[in-house]
């Protein structure tokens, strides 16, 4: 971290052009800086060797680089890695790298802590500390050991992306632009609990995939699991999604954590089929691994399989997500909370 100095990493091309203009440099200098930041390997501003000595000197005197190493990494027996990055005030954010066949998916955080207070979430128990900047979001990709091999990115780590929309959109722009990481938007999924104004702005301004945390189709149940339901009911969220033209390339999926005796009954299958009727989407069933102090427990394997089969029979394309990295607290929030408690 570089104190309060403005940092370069995380700036869009437009912002770099503004910096170039401010210092009276040619416009192409901004593109050169962007290429160094997002396409090449660099340790310091000194490495930007195609910039003039004077330009580098001004950059060094005025800006920080903003590329920060991880502070800890743990590796699971299944190859999943959990990275911890230190942020302000002794807090930590988590980043997971999940290898699978020829893919390496990185799960990034968008906030330090979270405001949403979902009953089943460990991150929520930290409360909310701060938003991450676009630079801090993409640093989670730039600064891990597998940086050159990342194939997919999911915004499913700590925090609610649509509660930090501006920085999340900036990070997506950097990841998907030709001057940035040049990643296909089809390789990126942003997951939200369904803050409608943020979701609509995201759908309009980005073309990456969207995932919504659903967890139950019933309003009264969802209110007990996810406080956001009292403000943005899932039925309204789905209504807005149904009204949106996703085209052929863009994907919408729903996340559904299975809680024993809570959301895994035939009536849930029926209501889910009704809720998602007419929508080309995927429903991802997720096994729940209990967190300290929660009254919820996970559904057994047999019921999960039956639930999946019943939904598929009703025309809802449903899959079961593989559990990964359980031996290293890969469930979001567990490791950083442990670290936070230790440091306090």
């Amino acid at each position: 971290m570089e104190g309060k100095r403005e940092v370069l990493f995380g700036k869009t091309l437009t912002e770099l052009q503004q910096i170039a203009a401010k210092h009276g440099w040619q416009k192409f200098v901004a593109k050169q800086i962007a290429e160094w930041l997002y396409k090449k390997k660099l340790i310091s501003i000194n490495d930007m060797t195609n910039l003039s000595k004077n330009t580098r000197q001004v950059l060094k005197e005025t800006y920080g680089l903003g590329i920060n190493p991880f502070s800890k990494v743990q590796e699971s027996v299944d190859g999943t890695k959990k990275y911890l990055f230190a942020t302000h005030g002794n807090n930590f954010i988590e980043t997971a790298m999940i290898p699978e066949n020829d893919r390496k998916t990185v799960c990034v955080s968008s906030q330090v802590g979270c405001k949403m207070g979902c009953l089943f979430c460990m991150t929520g128990k930290q409360g909310f500390q701060s938003n991450l900047t676009a630079g801090e979001i993409i640093n989670q990709i730039k600064s891990i050991e597998e940086r050159e091999e990342v194939t997919n990115i999911v915004y499913m780590g700590m925090g609610e992306p649509f509660d930090n929309l501006e920085e999340v959109l900036k990070s997506l722009e950097i990841l998907t632009s030709g001057w940035g990481f040049s990643m296909s938007p089809k390789r990126i999924t942003v997951s939200s609990i369904g803050i409608i104004p943020g979701m609509l702005a995201f759908l309009e301004k980005s073309n990456t995939h969207l995932a919504i945390s659903l967890h139950t189709p019933f309003d009264e149940e969802r209110k007990n699991l996810m406080p956001v339901e009292v403000a943005y009911p899932i039925k309204e969220v789905v209504k807005e999604i149904k009204a949106w033209d996703f085209g052929r390339q863009r994907r919408i999926s729903f996340e559904y954590i299975m809680f024993k005796g809570v959301n895994d009954s035939p009536k849930h299958v029926k209501e889910l089929a009704r809720l998602l009727n007419g929508l080309r989407c995927r429903l991802n069933l997720i096994r729940f691994h209990p967190i300290p102090g929660t009254p919820l427990i996970g559904t057994d394997e047999e019921t999960i399989q039956e639930f999946k089969d019943s939904l598929n029979k009703k025309g809802v394309f449903t899959t079961i997500r593989a559990s990964r990295g359980q031996d290293i607290y890969a469930a979001c929030g567990l490791l950083s909370t442990k670290e936070l408690v230790k440091n306090r």
Binding site: K115, G117, E160, N224, P227, V228
Partner: peptide, 12 residues
């Protein structure tokens, strides 16, 4: 207290 009896509204 059963969690079903708890309803929350959070600032965000």
């Amino acid at each position: 207290v059963p969690y079903e009896n708890i309803l929350a509204e959070i600032y965000f």
